[in-house]
Design a protein around this nucleic acid. Structure first.
Length: 712
RNA sequence: GGGCGAUUAGCUCAGUUGGCUAGAGCGUUGCGCUUACAUCGCAAAGGUCACAGGUUCGACCCCUGUAUCGCCCACCA
């Protein structure tokens, strides 16, 4: 803004411009039983986060909805907050103390957590402040955090209830393990990505074949052993069998015979299992129960023991013989070299396959056998499928319904324990005496727990029990693990209102009205909230789910720090203004479509904001009357132009309302843009200039301006 | 392997109940500093709406198939 005319008093105009914002009491909605409320809970961004364009889009949409409903006279509430982001935050703080040469183990659990809370104190509000800068009209008095006392209480309550219903169990299974973060992850936290790897063909010689005599040439190989194909040769150290399809002619006769596991020189059996696809590789699969989920299944069917060859950090352990201590990828190299030396590596071919990656640090995850806690999901999914099928919860655009249902119908149990320190610690306690006994029995092979049965010496309780109910011992300790962050997020729509306590807020604002989020969050959060809502409150948590597109750069890549293609919303706010940012985003984002951003695209909003500013300035600088006087001069003769612009205004109001009712935000934005710029400014304002001194003209100008700003 | 989305002006994209001479922003060309705005105004050029069939009085929009690009999911040893 340069060259402001001298007669124009910027302060005065600004005061006028914003006066009607202030005249409305937006915030701190209170339960008002006589009115139907409109309520949104913000998808809690994580406390390590900084505002990115996805947030900007998401919050702008919510802000539009909430302001729209306010304008329509609803009692509105928009609850903001953050989640504690267990793994991400812990990584952040670990990095910070590493600068002092410390590991979290050096500090110990308690001192480390103090560091985390300190970190949160200093940095945890960054994103909240950024949301404020964006202009989100949340109820900032009500800001919530998943580690707050009330919300933590809800987490423990939920765990105990599910456990008592037999919906939480502990078990030894293959889970996704991040060797860098050294914790278990849920399936959703380990998204599959394509990796260019290799498929190694390895000969497992028959028992009778002396390995020193091996001469591998041409067709002779088959007579000397079985060839298996693998992408992860290092796991062969933990092989306990070779599996073939029972009907595979090539191998039928071999079932039951033995081969020698190379390098380890162990005897393993050839077994038959229908899970094996005869058309892949050689049709023979090495079976590594401790390091592959499907091999684990096979091992259960054939009663094979699982042999773990890797430690939690992804390095080889004492079962790996000479490879002990090597990192998994280093071990792979050495094993390949050793196999080559022995003429056992027959072929290597390029192979593109998918591997899970840690969603926090992008390390390739390791399928890893370990004892974890799980939520049994099928029973929770059933009612959550029904409410969507019945239309009690609607997705916008509707196509996401199918995605949701498909996932829900194939849902797997949810691994909820994490081997980190920052988070809600499991409300699980053990009596040292009883568990010792139980472990003794386990070692003798007796089966101790069934589905939902209490393991001996295990106490599930929100508070630490004073003594063991079994043996009265007071030697009690708590499980070391914490819960998946999403185990607190899935309670969000009612935990923010005080659940499990029954509160007036909960009664009035829950279920909420609409949930606005990105597609990748459907599984993480939306589906789980629906399940939790039905399970714990008996109600759906929201009626509408609006799924907006993903923000991408011009090449279509998702914006991410690692790609370096981020456009920082704060930069845009500083250069163009928050209104320009928000208006641009909305007007270029078609319903549910991904949005491809570049810096230049924000010029659209900047230019429009500038137009609005100048038009407002022009109207207000010519205004002579007070608001009260203007109200008095209502009944005036209207010219054709006056009637025209007023009719266009009302048409615009109707069109914008209709668009917003149908979640068609870009349409609404473009409607008001078109009206304000090309009808109001280009025509009416110009037409009025000669008569600007007339009271009735000023009156109409002000009316149009005020209503346009309200629409905007 | 399954599911989904996209394909419209030089560029980026809108276009929901099938009825237009198919629209916008940016860019381009010409003119314009008329006391809100050059982050502007006026005017103009620019499209066989991916391709091939079909339904219909009428299709950018509905149906079938093809091609290209992208995304998500899946037990790719």
């Amino acid at each position: 803004m340069t060259d402001i005319p001298p007669k124009y008093n910027p302060k005065e105009v600004e005061d006028r411009l914003y006066s009607f914002w202030e005249s409305q009491s937006f915030f701190s909605a209170k339960p008002n039983p006589s009115k139907e409320p409109f309520c949104i809970v913000i998808p809690p961004p994580n406390i390590t986060g900084i505002l990115h364009m996805g947030h900007a889009l998401n919050n702008t949409i919510q802000d539009i909805l909430i302001r729209f409903k306010r304008e329509k006279g609803f009692e509105t509430l928009w609850v903001p907050g953050t989640d504690h982001a267990g793994i991400a935050t812990q990584n952040m703080v670990e990095k910070k103390i590493a600068e002092r040469g410390l590991k979290r183990q050096d500090l110990g659990r308690e001192a480390f957590l103090e560091e985390v809370w300190k970190w949160r104190q200093n940095y945890g509000n960054t994103i909240i402040n950024q949301l404020k800068r964006l202009g989100s009209s949340c109820d900032w008095e009500r800001i919530r955090f998943t580690m707050d006392e009330g919300l933590s209480n809800a987490v423990l309550e939920a765990f105990v209830r599910l456990y008592n219903k037999g919906l939480i169990y502990k078990g030894n299974y293959i889970i996704n393990w991040c060797p860098r973060c050294q914790t278990a992850l849920s399936d959703e936290e380990a998204p599959y990505q394509e990796v260019e790897g290799k498929l190694y063909y390895i000969l497992y010689p028959f028992k009778e074949v002396k390995s020193e005599k091996l001469k591998v040439k041409g067709g002779k190989q088959k007579r000397q052993g079985v060839i298996v194909a693998t992408t992860r040769p290092e796991t062969m150290l933990g092989d306990v069998a070779v599996a073939v399809h029972p009907k595979d002619r090539r191998y039928k006769k071999l079932i039951g015979s033995k081969v020698i596991l190379p390098l380890m020189e162990r005897e393993i059996e050839i077994i038959a299992d229908t899970i094996v696809d005869p058309n892949f590789g050689t049709g023979a699969v090495k079976v590594t129960p401790a390091h592959d989920p499907y091999d684990f299944e096979i091992s259960k069917r054939h009663n094979l023991k699982a042999l773990k060859i890797m430690g939690p950090d992804g390095s080889m352990n004492e079962n790996a013989g000479p490879y002990k201590g090597l990192d998994r990828f280093k071990a792979r190299e050495e094993i390949i070299r050793d196999l080559e030396e022995r003429n056992l590596l027959l072929k290597t071919e390029k192979h593109i396959h998918s591997a899970g990656h840690c969603y926090r640090c992008h390390t390739i995850i390791e399928p890893y056998l370990s004892e974890q806690w799980f939520v049994r999901m099928k029973p929770l999914a059933k009612p959550a499928i029904e409410v969507v099928k019945k239309g009690n919860i609607k997705f916008h655009p509707a196509r996401w319904t199918k995605v949701y249902l498909n996932w829900m119908e194939n849902i797997k149990d949810w691994c909820i324990s994490r081997q980190i320190w920052w988070g809600h610690r499991l409300p699980v306690y053990y009596c040292r005496k009883c568990t010792k006994q139980a472990n003794g029995l386990k070692a003798q092979g007796s089966r101790l727990k069934g589905r939902g049965e209490n393991e001996k010496g295990v106490i599930i309780s929100k508070i630490c029990p004073e003594k063991c109910q079994g043996c009265n011992s007071t030697d009690i300790y708590q499980d070391e693990d914490v819960l998946d962050t999403w185990f607190s997020s899935w309670l969000w729509p009612f935990s923010v209102f005080g659940w499990p306590k029954s509160t007036a807020d909960l009664d009035y604002f829950h279920p909420t009205s609409v949930l606005v989020t990105a597609p990748e969050i459907i599984f993480f959060w939306v589906a789980r909230m629906i399940m939790a809502g039905l399970e714990f409150t008996g109600k759906i948590p929201f009626k509408d789910v609006y799924i907006h597109g993903t923000v991408r750069d011009l090449t279509g890549a998702k914006m991410s720090k690692s790609l370096g293609n981020i456009i920082d919303p704060i930069d845009i706010i500083e250069e163009f203004g928050a209104d320009a940012l928000r208006f641009s985003m909305i007007s270029i984002t078609a319903t549910g479509q991904d949005v491809f951003l570049s810096r230049e695209k924000f010029e659209l909003g900047r230019n429009f904001a500038n137009k609005v500013w100048n038009a407002s300035r022009f109207v207000l600088m010519n205004l002579k009357q007070s608001k009260e006087q203007r109200a008095k001069s209502k009944e005036l003769g209207l010219s054709l132009a006056d009637k025209w612009i007023l009719s266009r205004l009302h048409r615009t109001i109707n069109a914008v309302t209709r668009s917003l009712d149908n979640y068609r935000f870009n349409e609404a934005a473009n409607t008001i843009y078109e009206f304000f710029w090309h009808e109001f400014c280009d025509w009416y304002l110009e037409l009025t200039k000669p008569e600007i001194g007339l009271e009735e003209k000023q009156c109409i100008l002000f009316t149009i301006l005020e209503n346009s700003l309200k629409l905007l």
